[in-house]
Design a protein around this nucleic acid. Structure first.
Length: 835
RNA sequence: GCCCCCGUAGCCCAACUGGCAGAGGCAGCCGACUUAAAAUCGGCCGAGUACGGGUUCGAAUCCCGUCGGGGGCACCA
């Protein structure tokens, strides 16, 4: 293969030469530093979600950082001091797995990848402030994870409890509920099982109401979809706790229901098979029942999450030979154990109202239990719905209470109020709220994470490591077996584990678990404010100056976990008096994903588009421009549908404008070609609004129009010396600097400027140039266009009506018909109704 | 099963939120330049807005239904 001889014609757009030139200049000038205390510009905080350093940057990163950069560079261009930092979410399993597989040091592996990503980001022209870099695996960072953990512990927001946890048999570690997807481990797709362990939790539920209610303050600034997902995840429900006496048990048990109005329809009770309560009730039963119960529980535990989640799974359970007493009517209700009731929601026990709950009805039919209808439910036409016992369809809506003693005749809402009142008076129940949200399990039995700063002392219990002894650094991997084995690898580092109690000085043991890496990312946005601070996690004055984040940019994959945890941390830190706001991200933009031929790019499918190859072939600017131009930012991009080659052609075309301009910098554009000036200023005006509403693809299209108009002016209009041509070319360079920073700088310099276009500011829009001399008024007859009139934009309704009716074309269209009505929308439209 | 979003030229996408369906690009075609090609420049072609109803002077836009695509939740009592 031969390479054609490169002509040394420097009048051609050569992206390689341009990249080399400007990368050096930017390295030297560092134009996006935000930390100068004397900087008088107003501030903005624009944040891209930080990457995990699993290798070099890929197409997904390229899209995210291209879009984040448009926003950040826009505000810089508008004259703001923009804090646009980057860092690395550098704790986590891939480093550890690489260490296990290839025997490399996780720290070394991580730092190598970070160096590579950083270099790629610089090449990619990301407008980051390189003075503010953070990496979560560094002790200078995770020290403050430990510090915050300690503060949460002091406030009772970090606690340890034994419970059935999600267990990944492959990774040999626990998973948060959020990390279990369809019963599979989010990372390795292994079916998740349950295991009983004592683990650390953060008490997210303490903030459940606030996390839910304050979502409303984000409406309009966050995607509706994300708000809905968070709302769903928190899953607040309102109902009542009702206490049932249990035969042969001193303590009554409480159940939670959202339908206390159907209390008279309860025909049995169900307790979660894997709950302590079920075990205890079974113990009070005869030997045969106990045996059946134990067998059932074993069966339930053996079933994988996938089986459990199967919707069509028939109901199973065991009658415990025990009875509860319905508080409203004294009826004896048999108590069953089943896995369709969850141990960790509500009280792990329910009253079953089969007539009005589908799950209870399915169970009742499977076990041949009675069904009692207590609601008269009707369809839209007022006809009674079929009896649930016969139809198999529970009636779960509104209705009129029947068979319910004092509640008879009431509707659902009134009955709920009445029954809560009645229960309260008898001390048998009260209103209650429940959440789908569970506390956040943060313990991980892995090496590559933040050690939990707790010492276990026989005498003093759980003792936090004092602040002045932080960080608790990870021990060296030397001699440690990192392979997953159900216990943290740290447990084997005996020199490290064995310590003394900070309180009493006796021998004690360190906690050997490490924190979920979502802890790292729950507050990193605050650490950027003062990455080198050694006497606190972040500087409180800097937080006042910059936070909360004005614009957060990242993938929708983090719509629940990361955002929810960050919101929790922010509220907790606020309550510690460290910050004065409760929501970290004032606005959120979710970019889509990059696909290839309709499916996600993956190594296994072999349809991977390599970023480095795209950059080599088309250049950074073309790839970035393609990302912005492909469509709305939140839509997925199919790389097969877009054209980086087309982007390159356009950039060359734009670049040549600067080459062709012959006027000197600083000429007054006022004397220039008015038509071109009008296009320039219209583009400018639109660009502001379009960027701020994230319609980057439309901005690019507008710039293309401006380039076309300028080309035309140069070749067959005002000519290359016209001041309006310079003005247009300069605006092209400025606007293009958001999308194609290299080409834009090169244009700016060709246009005779010595400063950076990225910092050159945007000219004021000249409103006078936006007003048109005439506009086209469309005249419709019965909705069909019959004539077009050139009229003044200030034309009045009456005048326009007269003009329209006077038109010959219009009169012909009306013909013999009678004009019934004339709708005038000056200056653009007239519609004549005639028949 | 429940909830949410989306269907506009061959393709990616615009359309001032109810007012001329087309801004931009990709692909295609024609022409200019060239010995030829590439590059460049100029031009052309192209849907009546998934489908069916409704509201309105007027609907891609609002309402109802159907079909198709995408996403979220899924025994949470």
């Amino acid at each position: 293969m031969t390479t054609p001889v490169e002509t040394t014609d420097d009048a051609r757009y050569d992206f390689r030469a341009i990249e080399a030139r400007w990368l050096d200049v930017w390295r030297e000038k560092q134009p996006f530093r935000s930390g100068n205390p004397d900087d008088a510009r107003p501030t903005k905080y624009v944040l891209d979600m930080f990457p995990y350093p699993s290798g070099d940057l890929h197409m997904g990163h390229a899209e995210a950082y291209a879009l984040g950069d448009v926003i950040s560079r826009y505000w810089v261009l508008k004259g703001f001091n923009v804090l646009h930092p980057i860092g690395w979410d550098s704790f986590g399993l891939p480093a550890e797995n690489a260490a296990i597989k290839r025997g490399v040091d996780p720290a070394g592996w991580t730092e190598d990848n970070i160096a590579q990503q950083r270099s790629s980001m610089e090449r990619y022209a990301c407008s980051f402030d390189w003075d503010r870099v953070l990496m979560t695996h560094r002790p200078e960072y995770y020290r403050w994870n430990q510090w915050i953990f300690t503060r949460l512990f002091e406030r009772g927001l970090a606690y340890r409890k034994p419970s059935q946890v999600n267990w990944c048999p492959n990774d040999q570690t626990v998973l948060a509920n959020e990390q279990v997807v369809n019963g599979l481990c989010e990372r390795c797709d292994t079916p998740v099982t349950k295991k009983k362990l004592t683990q650390w939790y953060f008490k997210v539920t303490e903030y459940a109401d606030e996390l839910l209610d304050e979502l409303e303050t984000l409406r309009g600034s966050w995607p509706d979809k994300v708000i809905a997902m968070q709302r769903n995840w928190i899953g607040r429900s309102r109902g009542a706790d009702v206490t049932f006496l249990i035969e042969g048990r001193d303590e009554p048990i409480a159940i939670y229901t959202t339908r206390p109005d159907t209390l008279y329809g309860a025909t049995f009770m169900v307790v979660a098979a894997d709950s302590d309560l079920a075990a205890e009730l079974a113990q009070g039963a005869d030997a045969e029942t106990q045996e059946r119960f134990n067998a059932y529980v074993d069966e339930v535990k053996a079933a994988s999450e996938i089986d459990r989640l199967s919707t069509e799974r028939p109901k199973t359970g065991v009658f415990l030979q025990r009875y509860g007493i319905n508080p409203v009517n004294g009826e004896k209700l048999p108590i069953w154990a089943s896995d369709y009731v969850l141990a960790d929601y509500g009280h792990g026990a329910i009253m079953a109202v089969p007539a009005h709950d589908q799950r209870d009805l399915d169970f009742a039919r499977a076990m041949d239990l009675p069904v009692r209808t207590v609601l008269d439910c009707r369809d839209e036409d007022g006809n009674p719905l079929p009896e649930p016992a016969e139809s198999g369809e529970a009636t779960t809506g509104n209705g009129t209470l029947i068979n319910s003693g004092p509640l008879d005749g009431l509707d659902k809402a009134a009955a709920i109020a009445a029954v809560i009142e009645q229960l309260g008076a008898a001390d048998q129940g009260k209103e209650a709220v429940n959440y789908r949200l569970r506390d956040w399990l943060i313990s991980r039995q892995r090496y590559w994470g933040t050690p939990i700063p707790i010492v276990h002392c026989d005498d003093c219990g759980e003792v936090p490591v004092p602040d002045d002894q932080l960080p608790v650094k990870l021990p060296s991997t030397d001699g440690l077996d990192l392979k997953p084995k159900g216990q943290s690898p740290l447990a084997a580092a005996s020199d490290w584990v064995n310590t003394t109690c900070p309180k009493c000085g006796k021998p004690a043991l360190r906690d050997t678990d490490t924190m979920d890496t979502f802890v790292d990312s729950s507050w990193y946005f605050l650490r950027y404010l003062s990455v080198n601070k050694t006497d606190g996690p972040f500087d409180l004055d800097e937080a006042k100056k910059w936070a909360p984040i004005d614009q957060y940019v990242g993938g929708v994959t983090h719509a629940i976990l990361h955002l929810l945890y960050s919101r929790f941390f922010t509220k907790a830190l606020r309550d510690m008096g460290m910050i004065d706001f409760g929501e970290p991200f004032s606005a959120l933009l979710n970019q889509g994903m990059v696909q290839m031929n309709g499916s996600a790019m993956s190594k296994s499918r072999g349809n991977l588009v390599r970023l480095s190859e795209q950059l080599d072939e088309y250049g950074v600017d073309s790839v970035r421009l393609t990302m912005s131009f492909a469509g709305p930012p939140e839509d997925d991009i199919d790389w097969a549908d877009v054209s980086p080659a087309g982007s390159m052609k356009f950039l060359a075309r734009a670049w040549r404008l600067a080459r062709d301009v012959t006027s000197e910098p600083g000429v007054d554009p006022a004397s220039g070609d008015r038509d071109l000036r009008a296009v320039t200023h219209r583009t400018l005006a639109d660009a502001n609004e379009l960027v701020e509403s994230f319609r980057f693809n439309v901005v690019v299209a507008r710039v293309m129009e401006l380039v076309n108009a300028t080309r035309k002016a140069i070749d067959s209009g005002a000519g290359p010396a016209d001041p309006a041509v310079r003005e247009a070319a300069e605006v092209v360079a400025k606007l293009l600097s958001l999308f194609a920073p290299y080409a834009a700088e090169d244009m700016w310099s060709m246009l005779g400027h010595t400063d950076l276009v990225a910092l050159s500011g945007l000219p004021e829009v000249d409103e006078a140039l936006l007003v048109q001399d005439t506009v086209t008024a469309v005249v419709q007859v019965m909705g069909k266009v019959r004539d077009r009139l050139e009229v003044s934009p200030e034309i009045g309704e009456d005048e326009l009506r007269e003009l329209a009716l006077a038109s010959a074309n219009v009169q012909r269209a009306i013909g013999d018909a009678t004009v019934r009505k004339v709708i005038v929308r000056a200056p653009g439209l007239v519609n004549i109704v005639a028949n």
